[in-house]
Amino acid sequence: DDWEIHFNNITIRLHGVSEEQIEELKELIKNGAHEEELRKWAEEVNR
């Protein structure tokens, strides 16, 4: 699925990401992940 997530003036566009991966991302954000951590997560997902 395609997703677009907005938070802290950042837009993250995701393509072909599962519901499970979105839940992981929500947890990262909820736990106060920094932009660098989110980038690493996105790189892993996009492999």
Rank of each mutant, 00 (worst) to 15 (best):
D2V: 14
G32Y: 02
H6L: 10
G32P: 00
L38I: 15
H15E: 08
E23Y: 09
A42R: 02
H34G: 15
D1C: 15
L28P: 00
N31W: 07
R13P: 10
E24Q: 11
N31Y: 06
G32F: 03
E27Q: 12
E23A: 13
V45E: 03
A33N: 02
D1K: 15
E43F: 04
S18L: 05
N46L: 15
I12K: 03
N9Y: 09
N31K: 10
E36Y: 08
E19I: 13
E43Y: 06
E37I: 04
H15V: 10
N8Y: 04
R39L: 15
E44F: 03
H34R: 12
T11W: 06
A33R: 01
L14W: 06
I22Q: 03
E37S: 10
I29A: 02
K30I: 06
V45Q: 11
L14S: 02
R39C: 10
E27A: 12
E23I: 09
L28E: 00
I10G: 09
V45L: 12
T11V: 12
E35R: 05
K40R: 14
N8E: 11
E44G: 05
R39P: 00
T11S: 09
K30G: 04
W41G: 00
E35C: 14
E35L: 11
I10N: 03
E24A: 11
E36L: 07
H15A: 06
S18T: 13
I12D: 04
K26Y: 14
N31G: 07
W3N: 03
H15Y: 14
I29Y: 03
R39M: 14
E43P: 00
T11E: 06
N8D: 11
G16I: 07
N9F: 08
W41V: 01
W41S: 00
N46A: 14
K30Q: 11
N8G: 14
G16H: 14
N31M: 10
W41P: 00
A33S: 07
R13Q: 09
V45G: 01
E27K: 10
H34L: 10
E24R: 10
E27D: 11
L38Y: 03
E20W: 10
I5Q: 05
E23G: 09
Q21D: 07
N9M: 14
H6P: 05
E37Y: 05
E43G: 02
E20C: 05
L14C: 10
L25D: 00
A33C: 11
N46D: 14
N8S: 10
K40E: 08
E44Q: 08
H15D: 08
K30N: 08
N8Q: 12
N9H: 09
R39N: 05
W3I: 12
N8V: 09
V17Q: 02
R39F: 11
W41K: 01
K30F: 05
S18N: 07
I5Y: 11
A42D: 02
E36I: 07
L25W: 04
I12M: 05
E27R: 13
R47P: 14
H15M: 05
I5S: 08
K26Q: 06
H6N: 10
N8T: 09
L28I: 07
D1V: 15
E35G: 05
T11R: 02
E24W: 06
S18M: 04
E4V: 12
E36V: 06
E37F: 05
V45T: 08
H6C: 12
I5V: 09
G16P: 03
R47F: 15
W3A: 03
E36M: 07
E36W: 09
R47L: 15
G32K: 02
F7T: 06
V17K: 01
N9G: 15
K40P: 00
W3K: 05
D2W: 15
I5T: 04
E20M: 12
K26N: 10
L38P: 00
E35M: 07
K40I: 08
N31L: 06
E19W: 13
E35S: 05
H34D: 15
T11N: 07
V45S: 03
H15T: 08
I12N: 03
F7E: 01
I12W: 01
E27C: 13
E37N: 03
N8R: 08
I10A: 05
L25H: 00
H15W: 14
N9D: 11
R13W: 13
T11F: 13
V45H: 10
N46V: 12
I22E: 01
D1P: 08
A42T: 05
E35Q: 04
V45I: 13
L28T: 00
T11H: 05
V17S: 01
N9I: 09
N46C: 15
L25F: 13
G16M: 08
I22S: 02
V17C: 02
D2E: 14
E20H: 09
A33Q: 01
L14A: 03
I10M: 10
K26V: 09
L28A: 01
I29L: 11
I29H: 01
K26R: 11
W3D: 03
E43H: 05
G32A: 02
L38K: 00
L14Q: 01
Q21R: 08
E23R: 13
L28G: 00
N9W: 07
E4F: 13
L14Y: 04
D1L: 15
